[in-house]
Design a protein around this nucleic acid. Structure first.
Length: 789
DNA sequence: AGTCACGTCGTTTTT
DNA sequence: CGACGTGACT
């Protein structure tokens, strides 16, 4: 029996809704995930629906995992049969089964943005297009948005008539698709577009899914694009003997639509009722997350948008603290101030995991990280350089791809001369030309290297070395080697580690790169274990490659690891934290440059982003800005964000120690701040005194205050996350390790864990450590940056 | 073929 | 400022 007692009347109504289209307009913090999970549970437990016939689509893998866990807790059995997935993974799964109707191999690989860039670059070179005139970005963006609109190269061509630039793009688009197909690869946008295409081409395939999925649920509907809209329309026609029914339930909040830049079409949510007649509309307007004050701020800000469905969020929660607005002289002071503030609260007993610092662009994380490291605070950074796009990881993945699917020329080309084999660019180009001419793949051309004109026997020999390594590995894989062993095998055969040593500038860097490979091996182990447990019959290697090409940064976040969370406002969507800081509240930072046009749409999207940020906060919200900031290498002065003016002053508290003036208490009293009144331009002297004023009175505060100190921090930063290299390298005696069984150790990535077992192997020791939230990890003592604590 | 040094350009945001 | 690509040199 399911417990519905914690649902409010609207939530209950949504949960009980069974047949027919349903749109749930769920404001921030209104418990929409609770509604979705309860609805799934209700269908399974009380309506006797086979879980296998329910499809739930989320925005990220993390959200999907969370949803599955929660459904699991609600229903007795069957939760694992519900198809819970992201749009992209779902499409990849569908395509794996039937993409052959479009003339692709089922073993297709998925190209990430880097691969995309490489391919586009090659094409531009081939066509001798001057990238100074039209930058490659333009091509990538144009192709991507075309695909999101389901416009193929031919349609694009037709539409481009009369426009020189568009025609140029059309030509590139054609070639791009041709090459993708030749490489048996799909890019992210293809996953959606090709699925729609597959359904159009093979109605029987579509019918299979239409019959299967009787109930479809979509989260974050406001961020769907046209392709996703069409895909849903295709899928949601469930045929019964009485005709067609649309058991499509979408959940969204137009105020939280923040992905217009990547094709999200807000009209999908605004027009849903017109698209599906007889739609039931339910609004969830009670907020359970934030204090009254925070919600009040959010409502005030978002009310400045015109393009929105009217709704008003309310809460029964207490009013809580005022929202703080802190001013700093520059970006470094801002970082110091925020971390100092967290430190204060932490010493008063708050857990570091309760804090999140949000910013507009990833570049803003650096100074914050510096301060966190300086203070010795653990932190979790979401975004930035993706783990899977690190050079060494991409290298290994390219080996895996080559072994799995020799058609992916991009992967083959990448590793052809990695580690160095004396096969240069000119040779690779000759091979490519030969492959093109003879209509064979790049790899097959390599196999016939001696036949390629212009390649001497010496070079051909070296090429043969490469191809025979690949073929040797392929043979061993057929013998049923695990992915983890396969990676180790690749590293061994190619002497990859010694290549890394040569390649890296410092020992630290080499160490870091090795650790990343270790980490990849760990991920492979975990993946294969899960795959085995789930009883899936899909091929481990290809599903592994698919899975990792579809992980988002946010998916990698682990809630069990303690620490301050750092991420962009975009990544923060769907999350909540007791204490939230939003930094860089300045014009040209947030909102970012919208100089192109006076387009209100851009401003409104930025405002929604701000709204998303505000509504992440449960207890306290702190907004900060700096008068002066380093922006792409230039010191720039900027004004406060226009959004700050939209917050009534009665809800704000300005820190007088940072402002240096007591403007607020006098100026406020119910009316809005007129920021122009406070011209806070100040000279060097006040800059210094402010600096002193801010935090020096805190006797525990010891962040660097001079440039020299800062230099010390930088070098410290480099070393801090890593433990001293193990002195036991080469030794066989476990007691020479700085830790032993039962000790608690710290890992920069996994946090704290307990050493379970130490086994001597090869040159060093394999240490098993139980990290809460990650499970037991096997690490090599000479690689793993473990530190006893 | 591989290395080094210089120039350029750039920043949203992400599946 | 720093990453990255191009070009000249060994």
């Amino acid at each position: 029996m399911i417990d519905y007692s914690r649902l409010n009347p609207e939530q209950y109504k949504a949960v009980m809704h069974e047949e027919g289209p349903l749109i749930i307009l769920a404001g921030a913090g209104s418990g929409k995930t609770r509604v979705l999970t309860h609805r799934i549970a209700h269908l399974i437990e009380e309506c006797d629906v086979n879980p296998y016939r329910i499809l739930a689509i989320t925005f990220t893998n993390k959200a999907a995992k969370e949803m599955r866990d929660r459904v699991n807790r609600l229903v007795a059995t069957g939760a694992e049969d519900v198809f819970i997935s992201t749009f992209h993974s779902m499409c990849a799964t569908f395509l794996r089964r039937d993409i052959n109707v479009l003339g692709y191999e089922k073993s297709f690989t998925i190209y990430d943005t880097d691969d995309q860039k490489v391919l586009i670059r090659e094409i531009l070179k081939q066509f001798q297009i001057d990238t100074k005139q039209t930058k490659e970005r333009v091509f990538i963006n144009a192709i991507s948005s075309a695909k999101n609109e389901l416009i193929g190269p031919d349609r694009f061509d037709e539409d481009a008539r009369g426009d020189y630039t568009l025609q140029k793009i059309a030509k590139v688009y054609h070639e791009y698709q041709k090459r993708l197909k030749a490489n048996n690869a799909l890019d992210f946008d293809d996953l959606l577009m090709k699925t729609v295409e597959m359904f159009n081409t093979a109605p029987d395939v579509l019918e299979k899914y239409r019959r299967r999925f009787k109930y479809i649920m979509v989260d974050e509907y406001q961020d769907t694009n046209h392709a996703q809209f069409v895909l849903l329309k295709q899928l949601a026609e469930h045929h019964t003997e009485n005709g067609v029914e649309h058991n499509l339930c979408v959940v969204g909040d137009d105020d939280q639509s923040i992905y217009r830049f990547r094709g999200a079409d807000i009209r999908n949510i605004l027009d849903f009722e017109n698209q599906y007649p007889n739609t039931t509309v339910i609004k969830l307007e009670q907020n359970y997350r934030s204090t009254g004050t925070i919600l009040d701020v959010a409502n005030n800000v978002i009310s400045n948008n015109c393009m929105r469905k009217e709704k008003s969020m309310w809460t029964e929660n207490e009013k809580g603290d005022a929202v703080r607005l802190l001013r700093f002289s520059d970006d470094r002071d801002e970082a110091k101030g925020i971390i100092g503030d967290i430190r204060k609260k932490h010493e008063d007993g708050a857990s570091l995991s309760d804090f999140a610092i949000l910013y507009r662009t990833n570049a803003q994380s650096r100074l914050l990280e510096e301060q966190l490291v300086y203070n010795g605070f653990p932190y979790k950074l979401v975004g930035g350089v993706n783990f899977y796009s690190r050079m060494e990881v991409k290298d290994i993945l390219s080996y895996l791809k080559t072994i799995e699917n020799g058609l992916d020329s991009l992967a083959v080309r990448r590793i052809l001369n990695v580690p160095k084999r004396g096969i240069g660019l000119t040779t690779a180009d000759k091979v490519e030309a030969f492959a093109l001419e003879n209509q064979i793949s790049f790899f097959d051309a390599l196999c016939e290297a001696e036949k390629i004109p212009g390649i001497n026997s010496g070079t051909a020999k070296r090429i043969n070395m490469f191809t025979s390594i690949i073929q040797a590995i392929r043979k061993d894989v057929a013998g049923g080697m695990s992915i983890a062993d396969l990676i180790r095998f690749i590293c061994e055969k190619t002497e990859y580690f010694s290549y890394l040593d040569d390649y890296s500038d410092t020992d630290d860097e080499a160490f870091e790169r090795r650790s990343n490979i270790e980490e990849l091996i760990n991920k492979a182990v975990t993946f294969e274990e899960e795959l085995r447990l789930s009883g899936s019959e899909s091929l481990p290697l290809s599903s592994f490659l698919q899975e990792i090409s579809l992980v988002a940064d946010i998916d990698e976040m682990n809630d069990a690891v303690p620490g301050v969370t750092l991420m962009t406002l975009h990544s923060a969507k769907g999350l909540e934290f007791p204490n939230v800081y939003i930094c860089g509240m300045e014009e040209d930072v947030f909102p970012g440059r919208t100089y192109e046009s006076d387009d209100n749409d851009d401003e409104e999207e930025e405002r929604r982003l701000f709204y998303v940020g505000i509504t992440r906060a449960m207890k306290t919200l702190t907004l900060t800005y700096a008068k002066q900031r380093m922006l792409r290498g230039q010191i720039t002065f900027s004004d406060r964000s226009r959004f700050l003016k939209e917050i009534p002053t009665r809800l704000l508290e300005m820190d007088s120690s940072t402002s240096g003036h007591d403007y607020i208490s006098k100026a406020s009293r119910g009316k809005r701040l007129e920021f122009e009144d406070y011209d806070d331009s100040y000279g060097e002297s006040s800059f210094k005194s402010r600096r002193r004023n801010s935090y020096e009175d805190n006797d525990y505060y010891s962040a660097p205050s001079s440039f020299d100190d800062y230099e010390a921090v930088s070098s410290f930063r480099k070393k801090a996350p890593q433990a001293a290299p193990s002195k036991s390298f080469g030794s066989k005696d476990p007691s020479s390790l700085p830790y032993a069984c039962g000790d608690t150790v710290r890992h920069p990535k996994f946090g704290d864990g307990v050493v379970k077992e130490i086994v001597a192997g090869g040159k060093d020791f394999e240490v098993s450590v139980d990290f809460p939230g990650y499970g037991i990890r096997k690490l090599l003592s000479s690689f793993a940056p473990l530190k006893k604590i």
